[in-house]
Write a protein that binds this DNA or RNA. Structure first.
Lengths: 205, 205, 205, 205
DNA sequence: TTTTAAACGAGACGGTACGTCCTGTCTTGCT
DNA sequence: AGCAAGACAGGACGTACCGTCTCGTTTAAAA
């Protein structure tokens, strides 16, 4: 689904009201802000197309023209936010990078507004396979790349074996975090993420 | 939410139409079956109180009398099913028990109808904190006990140290499974669950 | 259209909110009053289902449950009003009765609120053959009977020949009135209706 | 509303897309044909500005530039057609001329496409006083002149008294026809129009 | 037995949001 | 300057469910 994120490509200059050169940037931004605000203020059930339209000062039809559903609006809003967070720093040291990244991930998922959007999207994905596919393609695949970055750097450095099963390793590292966030609701403190890193590295000795 | 699961206690004998002493078992069963059917056939969005009532041949009011919401009906239906599956067998051997239990869990979550109910409930829990609390209290806590059973038995047998952090261990073992099921949508074959067990046990040597 | 006007038959007693004994009289009355008010205040285009619902304090669904369209609501309202007016008095004298009836008819059509409803319905009938058929069956046929009443009484009295073409005679008498009301928009003063009566009776001498 | 009918005066040459020399005749014709087609095919409710624009291959703005509303387009289309029909022939004989004219009028109103347009316009006039005024000024006044033509010729010939109330006479002759067409929906056969003429002339003997 | 009160089926009610359609206005680039 | 194209804010449409509320019936414990 590209219409949400490529508005800047289509529109050459202005964000005025309707014209033949594509969508209004003003409307797009207003919608994305409105959807974020509504989700945080009223929860997922409080996010309605009518509510977004009213809050953004936009016509419903304008929303339907560019987004197939409210979750696609949320995904659009999420993509804008996600890249800003969660790019693991290159510290030259696997353990440090993993500790930093996992604790940041836990914080992002549990404490930030985009994290709340993520949880809502992950929730909705359970109800709608098509949406789940879009969610994975647009949001999760990028995230997955970032999650594996410390490991791939360590492999390049020779700190991890070249035949490491990356998929499995990433699942082991971040799986328990998502499990706590999405299933048990337990807190995910640094002590927990550090322990995950410890046990992941220990067995390699 | 207790009224859903204790109906059998209140009703003395029959499940015919109105009576002055407790709820109709006929109605309860019809509702639980209808909700399961609808979820599997039409997905979570296709589960509506009106639809359940029509399918079960029951009045809406009867549903509202006994369940606060459609997710509570689903939880009621889920509880009935869950216990049947997923009780790990006592095989006297940690590795075997873990392999068996984790692969059964993966199968339950991804391939069975109650698994679909679970995913729907887990999804809805992301949108509704109150419901999430009920979900954890009624469904997950039991499951959590079962998940830790092989480890606790191993501790009793002396195969695992007494000071083992059970919570962390369970999270490491089942977290990646739930992560695949709820987030990435990747399949969860026995090869994957076996690998989880391997790596969990390896470092103990 | 019968569901609108036979509510009193179906509902045995109360006008409370929903019950199994048919529709709420309170809602029905509120809708009919709202539709009349809106037509007079804002014209036909200002009559909307949403506006009626809001004004009557009624849910849209309740309106759709009982009336197929807004014109059917207007017809229902019109039927209630029409009978009150326009029953020609029995004065024992053809000329007097005709003069009275035609001038009353003209006044009804041009100066009263139900007359405005009639004009709106007659207008809509031009756009919708099905509605036109309902309109004729429910509203006009009764009116037609009243219009011919003075002539039929005169025939009974022997003041008019028994083989009089009633249809033609009524068309000649009231046709020009409706023509002015619906087509030319000219006023229809008593001088005009009296002249119609004169010319109708003159040729019989 | 004059902009619709004087286009031919302004445009000097072509009807291509945008040009700097007044309106496009191509667009005007396409719109008038589209509106006629749509009215006949889908009825008045099926006539929308968007539909006309799509069918005529014309931009909505072009329509709004030249016509204030869809009924004005219909009036424009109607004026073109009306003059062609309904000019009563000069037969030198009042009765013949009246018989011919009234039966042609009845046929025009009930059986022709322009007649359908007329009925739609007359219907809409009931809902919109401003439009009714335009309708009378642009369409009906001409028609009224034609309707009275046989009578005026007869007065000139001395076949009718010079002090004849022309308005009343015309109303008596055509009123019943319009009444049947617009109100009762009864057919208007020659037998009916002939009877109207008979009775109109009889009383003069 | 007869009474009687709780639970039942049915379904109308006031609402909210849905997704669609059309309105009339606007801006742009082409002819 | 007029045009085709089409995005825009707005608003009504008719539908689907929500959760609440009578109704009149069914039922079995209490009287």
């Amino acid at each position: 689904m590209g219409e949400g994120s490529d508005g800047g490509v289509v529109v050459p200059r202005t964000g005025h009201h309707g014209n033949r050169h594509g969508r209004s940037q003003r409307a797009r931004q207003a919608v994305l802000e409105a959807v974020d605000d509504l989700l945080v203020e009223r929860g997922f059930a409080g996010v309605t197309i009518e509510g977004i339209a009213a809050r953004a000062g936009v016509a419903k039809q304008t929303i339907y023209r560019w987004w197939p559903s409210k979750v696609d609006i949320l995904m659009d809003a999420f993509v804008d936010d996600m890249a800003q967070h969660l790019t693991p720093p290159d510290q030259g040291d696997l353990e440090s990078e993993l500790r930093t990244h996992l604790s940041r991930l836990a914080d992002f998922l549990t404490r930030t507004d985009p994290g709340a959007v993520f949880r809502a999207l992950a929730g909705q994905a359970q109800h709608d396979p098509d949406m789940a596919a879009r969610f994975r393609a647009e949001c999760l695949s990028q995230q997955r790349v970032l999650d594996s970055l410390p490991l791939r750097r360590a492999v390049e450095r020779g700190d991890l074996p070249a035949d490491l099963d990356l998929d499995l390793a990433v699942d082991q590292l971040v799986g328990p975090i998502y499990y706590r966030v999405l299933v048990t609701g337990q807190p995910v403190p640094p002590a927990f993420t550090d322990a995950l890193v410890d046990r992941f590295l220990t067995r390699r000795d």
